[in-house]
Design a protein around this nucleic acid. Structure first.
Lengths: 243, 243
DNA sequence: CGAACCTTTGAAGTGACTCAATGCGTGTGG
DNA sequence: CCACACGCATTGAGTCACTTCAAAGGTTCG
């Protein structure tokens, strides 16, 4: 549970009661292997929520024709499944892309937490709004920029999320995705992703070494990708107003 | 306020207290003309929330190069501004695209409402999750389908939202957007949008008459667009669990 | 009645797709 | 310990959906 507490505690100081509330939310802990499916899309009654302890996941959606899109990447401390709980059927598939452990709890517990600690409700609401903002950014990236910009943006986003809680240099990122999955995330085919990687390497923007990507010219990548780190701009001061 | 109450009341029965809470949220009512900007992106301290009484709005985002994306369309009863409040600067611009009236309230009021009525918190949280699901759908549409599918999907979405609360036949929709704005919403240029409209008309899929679009072959449009009406699949039974 | 905005159409160029084949690395069974 | 299979990365060739640039036709409104 440290990751969650660390993450939310970093953003807003949690009272002891609130920390307890978070601790009590999750009752069971589960292990997953890379490739395991946590929630299948169209699953009936998706009433479970998940918090990542260790590892990485991604949310995806499929069309009838087999086209797939990856809509969201999840990192330790992230809450997963929120886009599913208000529906009768899950709206997205969640898959592990590394070995992972997650805390699981039924949405019923959330109801209890909301009732007892309104600030917890505000925190969950805020993070839903954050997800929204990130999806908006993704949408403009995919809808209104070319491949180079999309890839640059994705790499920067991964680096930012990956290093949110450690203090390592964020000149390196490890997507831990195949090039096909990267394509699904930015709306391109494998072939094009591969060509873009090649171009980026030839242009001296990045260096690649078995899944690790090093940023050689971060400022140029930032200019290309126009990535905005939404986590940096969070303002949770209004929480103080709650009891 | 009828629209809001009607909308949420349709989905989950509101107690008298809750209806009151909603009524008291909004203290001021404002008028807008088509084209007026409600919130400008990058506005500092975006602490206001809005509920549409009458009219239409859209949320958009711009890139440095001038490319614009429309990420969300808003209809009467919708809550706007939620993607802005957790940030120091607004993440999206909200613009009126018809004459409109909205209720305005500071996020502070939300805090009060959360504290007094946890079910109201759950409702807001649910609608944030709903927005999320819709954004996901939009993302796969823009990232993984061709122009025809995107346009079909958008038109169906507009029709569904437009007729959510009336019982009119949903064979007609009025986007109330210019073709350029439609392009911004589905990630295409005006030119291409226009060509698609022409094709749709020639193929007998739609008929157009000064902004009104009539669906002549809904089933084919649905097959092309693969639109999923997320409102239809909402399941709010778990709210009952809250005292 | 003209200005501003929107729609519509043409022509040429290109980024990304599809199809297809080869290379590479790792793990597994003979 | 080698051979083969499988998943992933890489590269080439041809095609197409959409873009850009440009201009003309409609509509609305002061």
């Amino acid at each position: 549970m440290q990751h969650l507490l660390q993450k939310y505690g970093r953003i807003t100081k949690l009272s002891e009661d609130e920390a307890d509330t978070f601790q009590n939310l999750a009752n069971s802990k589960r292990q997953f292997q890379a490739g395991d499916v946590l929630v299948a899309s169209d699953l009936a009654d998706p009433d479970q929520l998940y918090i990542i302890d260790e590892g990485r996941f991604f949310a995806s959606l499929e069309l009838a024709g087999g086209e797939r899109a990856i809509t969201r990447l999840y990192f330790p401390g992230d809450i997963m499944g929120t886009a599913n709980i208000p529906f009768e059927h899950a709206t997205q598939t969640i898959t592990a892309n590394t070995q992972a452990t997650v805390y699981t709890f039924p949405r019923h517990n959330l109801v209890d937490a909301f009732a007892r600690m309104p600030r917890v409700a505000a925190i969950f609401y805020t993070f839903a709004a954050l997800e929204n903002a990130i999806l908006n950014d993704r949408l403009i990236s995919v809808g209104r920029t070319r491949g180079r910009a999309r890839l640059a943006s994705l790499l920067l986003e991964i680096a930012a999320r990956e290093h949110l809680m450690d203090d390592e240099p964020d000149a390196i990122c490890q997507p831990r995705l195949t090039q096909e999955q990267i394509g699904d995330a930015i709306g391109l085919t494998v072939v094009q992703v591969n060509r873009l990687f090649k171009m980026f390497t030839e242009d001296g923007l990045i260096a690649r070494d078995s899944g690790r990507i090093e940023f050689l010219d971060r400022s140029r990548l930032e200019e290309m990708g126009q990535f905005r780190d939404r986590y940096e701009d969070l303002d949770l001061s209004w929480f103080k107003e709650i009891g």
